[in-house]
Design a protein around this nucleic acid. Structure first.
Lengths: 196, 196
DNA sequence: TAAAATCCGGACAATATAGTCCGGTTGCTA
DNA sequence: TAGCAACCGGACTATATTGTCCGGATTTTA
């Protein structure tokens, strides 16, 4: 008949379980990295294994849910006309500090859905980069890929140090990446392959 | 009596086993990263589990043996009076490309012995950095820690991408780190913490 | 209130890896 | 050549993590 099957909600509201799982995942991704045991995430969320795997069949699904919010923020910021490249990178760095699993997204993504998220991030950087270039705030040769690479480098670095040092380290790393290390940009003794 | 107990060597020469293990470890560290299964390393070396654990009680011992050679190269290069900072960084990058487990050494070392190796690397960078600074080749504010951080960033990045892309990516990353991204080093819109 | 649909949670099996142990083998000594 | 000492290799145990499954609790429907 037409009394279509109702979305029967269980004893303690499926949506709340889902939210608790996402919150726990964000927390443990930040503490232990992208490889945090799913068991721990379920336990932290106060939820059974079954519920975890019902809501999120695999690790990538969970990560996607965690990051979705952050990516939306990024896209919203990019959509504002006045947004500068520095603001975009600042937000991305904040997110990397908050969840070092961020590196799993900007690095080399194994899962196609994560690759798609990475592309969304790259796309949202396009306009701010163009504006920065036109305004002469950024060197000509810097590409979107460079920006993603730079964030990926910093995120990968942050993932390897204690949480307490991450903000300071991130700022120092950005200083180096922004201003560079050499005094004469035109003729650096760039470390390519050594002639051995 | 005085016929002291001889260092009895086993059936097929313990030293050869040891060398085979180091070679296998170097290979698998480069392919699969620092977390490569010790079981696989033993199998690749054509050696039993027992021999692996007899020679190297834990993962850090094995890594130390693998890196020792590279660190000696580094120190030897640093000892030559004419060595430039760029040459040092080039060699370190080569080593990071060859063995992405390098990141385990320059990152946040859990094992004190690995921390010691890290210190040796840092120490060997000192004189070349001083020379580069005196020659005006490098910005005043760049420290040894910055150099180690930079190598660590690049190594961590390389660990996350396919081996075939590592050399090219490393060169691009060094370009960014050396010359910087912004056009006006004095007033960059540095991404610190956003004012949220 | 009784039946049905649905969801919860933890026990359970499967798998991968670390680390141990011991029978067998080889080379050295006398 | 006989005996001994050290070493080899792989089987074995312990442990951690993933992913599945099912009894039971809860809400809705009639």
């Amino acid at each position: 008949m037409s009394h279509t099957r109702r979305p029967n909600r269980g004893p303690s509201a499926a949506a709340e379980n889902r939210a608790a799982l996402i919150a726990a995942a964000r927390e443990l991704f930040a503490t232990d990295g992208y490889d945090a045991p799913l068991t721990s995430i379920a336990r932290t969320a106060g939820v059974g294994q079954g519920s975890l795997y019902r809501h999120f069949p695999d690790r990538a699904s969970l990560a996607l849910a965690v990051f979705e919010e952050g990516v939306k923020e990024l896209e919203a910021l990019a959509a504002k006309p006045g947004t500068t490249l520095g603001e975009m990178l600042a937000l991305m760095t904040e997110q990397a500090i908050a969840s070092i699993a961020f590196v799993g997204m900007v690095g080399a993504p194994a899962d196609p859905r994560i690759a798609h998220v990475r592309d969304r991030v790259a796309r949202s950087l396009r306009d701010p980069l163009v504006r920065a270039r036109e305004a002469g705030h950024v060197r000509e040769y810097v590409t979107i890929e460079d920006l993603v690479t730079a964030v990926g480098m910093i995120a990968a670095l942050l993932a390897r140090i204690p949480a307490a040092e991450r903000r300071e380290t991130a700022q120092r790393a950005w200083l180096l990446l922004f201003t560079g290390m050499v005094s004469e940009p035109d003729a650096p003794s760039s470390p390519g392959r050594p002639d051995h």
